[in-house]
């Protein structure tokens, strides 16, 4: 057995940031994981990719606090519909302070706010990836 952790990374909707995503992708690569990076995607595309690529982790980034929560609700809804609840879902970027607990309530496993150490993302994944 030679298992490798597979991580899907995507930017949510029309969010146009780039640098943070590249830094996280690089860190994940150097951490020995296989990163399937799909750029900007809507919830349907994210969930279908997670299914076809059989990833262990779904990592979503968004700096658009106005639409993040609503789109994340749709992401989590489709994940449930497609029976992908075994995936670890992490979210990085900006949401309104009041919305942080709501992310967790809808099933997001961890939230990484701006300024998070990239290594902490990699080690969180390694420690919490479903066996």
């Amino acid at each position: 057995m030679e298992r490798k952790i597979r991580v899907l990374t995507a930017k949510l909707g029309f969010d146009m940031h780039n640098r943070g995503m590249s830094v996280v992708n690089r860190a994940l690569r150097d951490g020995g994981t296989e990163v399937v990076y799909i750029g900007n995607q809507f919830p349907e595309g994210i969930a279908e990719t997670a299914l076809q690529e059989d990833v262990d982790v779904i990592g979503i980034s968004s700096l658009n606090s106005a639409s993040s929560l609503e789109l994340m609700e749709r992401v989590m809804g489709i994940i449930k519909k497609k029976h992908l609840e075994d995936k670890l879902v992490i979210f990085g970027g900006i949401v309104l302070p009041d919305d942080v607990p709501k992310l967790k309530e809808m099933g997001v496993n961890e939230y990484f706010p701006p300024g998070s150490n990239v290594d902490s993302i990699v080690s969180y994944i390694k420690e919490n990836v479903p066996q």
Binding site: R29, G32, T33, V36, E48, E53
Partner: peptide, 16 residues
Amino acid sequence: HGGAILGDRIRMQDNF
């Protein structure tokens, strides 16, 4: 490190 960036799929979005 044994890691990889699998970045081909990003060009195939129309068929997702």
